[in-house]
Design a protein around this nucleic acid. Structure first.
Length: 583
DNA sequence: CTTAGGG
DNA sequence: CCCTAAG
């Protein structure tokens, strides 16, 4: 927890740094389980006044919270198993540091004092939900939100994301989290839940029972019962802006979604989030809401069940990128990276490294993972492009997603120049290589171009056909990874090879490589040697049999110009005759 | 590390 | 292309 505290602090700072100073103010006593605590998100105005947080601010907070929540969840979950009581204190601390949901001020106190629900309470609860993003699965109306939150959490859990304490903050949500995750525990701590829900529940009934109620109460009951006006108010409170929408359903969805979005943002897709946020929350909403119902089952104990569900969702989200990684892995990474990744992750957790890599499974992560440096480099750029301003910490976590996304895009063909470049520089050609032959990506093309450029001279005899070759970026990094996807030799390459042999002599593959193939990162001296060998075979083959051309074509490989073959033959003869002298 | 050769 | 032995 110590870590957490530190993190929290950091977060706070971050917030403050951002435009206005945003502070989380915990209201009410944080202590007891029984007493519900409500947190309100407010901004400290220049004059010291507390102003309700704006959408953006809330958003930020949420993001932060999200992480925190995840952590909390995890930690709590594990802890809870051991003993809730001990945790409580910690949680409280955290919550203090962070902010939690934004409740209306007045409500806070009331909540504490009044166990029963009343309209105010309900409203409050609603608000809390939004801000806090409580994730009880049950929340009905906002299943999405729940699911997302959960997802994130789940992700972390799955991944072993312990990490990121630094990034993630302690949890304002703790209460929520607890509810969601720990709920089972009898004890339950529920400072939060109380706030949101009600003190009563906390006390007695088992978590399970409580939860369901909450959701119902908040989501359905609260929202449903409220008049449109009230909903609009809520909306305003939640998002900091007014809405003209009169549709009750929409408002409800929006509100619930708002929470969801927030949740999502931090964890997974910034982009989406951004869009939503940036463009309009309203817009964004629609989609999420789909949520439909979550229905998860959860209830409870949720923690696990939720996690799983979410995880699946998350996977879905990641899916897209998955292929990419996979792809990459195949190419080069798999050899070393996975192991590395794993170790790193572990380390991270311990260190609380920024990187969230953990999220991704060992497998997928790879790409990003290649090198921590690389990963970060890559991500950063990407983020900056997509995202407005974000806390670095979170970014780390996000990075993976982005990177994955990017990769996916790249693979699809959209690849961004930047991205490609970044990858190259950072991770190296590995990734590209993989892509190479099968589907030429822009990247490949680019790379190729470069290569070709250099080689061009030689090409004279060559055909244009070469261009097509897949070059891709090979990655050959050091040693381990080799290009698996064989890149076909282009005519220009062959030409160069021949020339190189003519110049330096066969056997001086290393020299040829450096001098003639410097541009082609992927062709190794060994490759050159192999290719040469093949050329000789062909040449010989062609010669012996009567049909030179026919045989060649048959082979399927590119048609090498006769001239070239002849040249090869000559060289071969030469070498045979004068191996050393010659050169 | 670079070659040469085999798979 | 990959892997390995050998210089």
């Amino acid at each position: 927890m110590g870590t957490v505290g530190g993190n929290v602090k950091d977060c706070r700072e971050m917030f403050e740094g951002s435009a206005a100073q945003t502070r989380i103010t915990p209201f009410s006593s944080t202590n007891q389980i029984k007493n519900p605590v409500a947190y309100k998100l407010v901004r400290v105005a220049g004059d010291g006044r507390l102003v309700p947080a704006t959408d953006e601010e809330i958003f930020k907070v949420n993001e932060t919270d999200m992480h925190t929540a995840s952590d909390a969840c995890q930690s709590v979950g594990s802890l809870s198993a051991q003993g809730l009581p001990s945790q409580l204190p910690q949680l409280e601390e955290t919550s203090q540091g962070l902010l939690q949901s934004g409740c209306v001020e007045p409500y806070t106190e009331q909540v504490n004092s009044q166990p029963e629900y009343n309209e105010q309470m309900l409203q409050k609860v609603e608000q809390d939900e939004r801000l806090a993003m409580v994730h009880s699965p049950h929340m009905l109306s906002a299943p999405d939100a729940n699911s997302q939150c959960c997802n994130e959490t789940s992700m972390f859990n799955e991944d072993h994301v312990h990490h990121e304490p630094s990034l993630q903050q302690p949890i304002p949500f703790s209460s929520d989290v607890q509810n969601g995750c720990n709920v089972d525990q009898s004890n339950t701590v529920e400072p939060c839940s109380n706030a949101a829900a009600s003190p009563k529940e906390t006390a007695a009934p088992p978590a399970d029972a409580q939860r369901p109620d909450f959701s119902l109460v908040r989501g359905e009951i609260c929202l449903n019962n409220l008049p449109i006006k009230a909903l609009q108010e809520t909306f305003k409170a939640t998002f900091g802006r007014e809405t003209t929408v009169k549709d009750k359903t929409w408002l409800k969805r929006r509100i619930t979604t708002g929470l969801t979005n927030s949740c999502n943002v931090p964890t997974t897709n910034l982009t989406i989030k951004d869009k939503k946020l940036v463009g309009n929350q309203d817009k964004a909403n629609d989609a999420p809401p789909s949520s439909t119902d979550n229905s998860n089952g959860h209830s409870n104990a949720s923690g696990h069940s939720l996690t799983e569900d979410f995880s699946s969702e998350e996977r879905a989200a990641k899916r897209v990128r998955k292929p990419t990684r996979r792809y990459i892995e195949e190419l080069s990474e798999n050899d070393e990276k996975q192991p590395v990744v794993t170790s790193k992750d572990q380390k991270l957790s311990e260190k609380s490294d920024v990187r969230s890599i953990s999220v991704s499974l060992g497998t997928r992560v790879t790409v990003t993972r290649v090198v921590s440096l690389a990963g970060s480099e890559i991500e950063v750029p990407y983020v900056s492009l997509v995202r407005r301003s974000r806390p670095r910490e979170n970014i780390m976590a996000l990075m993976e997603c982005h990177s994955s996304c990017l990769e996916a895009k790249a693979s699809s063909g959209e690849s961004n120049m930047l991205y490609s470049e970044v990858l190259k520089s950072a991770s190296g050609p590995d990734q590209k290589e993989s892509a190479t032959s099968s589907s030429n990506n822009e990247e490949d093309v680019l790379t190729e171009v470069d290569q070709d450029m250099e080689t061009e001279n030689i090409d004279s005899s060559g055909n244009s056909s070469d261009d097509n070759n897949n070059i891709g970026l090979p990655t050959m990094q050091g040693g381990g990874l080799r290009r698996k996807h064989h890149r076909a030799w282009t005519l220009s390459e062959v030409t160069q090879l021949v020339e190189g042999v003519a110049k330096y002599g066969a056997g001086k593959w290393s020299e040829i490589k450096n001098l003639s193939f410097s541009s082609h990162s992927y062709r190794t001296p060994v490759d050159l040697k192999d290719k040469w060998r093949n050329l000789l075979l062909r040449t010989n083959f062609a010669q012996s049999p009567s049909n030179i051309m026919g045989s060649l074509k048959k082979h399927g490989s590119m048609h090498i110009p006769m001239q070239l073959l002849l040249q090869v033959r000559e060289l071969a003869e030469k070498q045979a005759l004068v191996p050393r002298n010659h050169r």
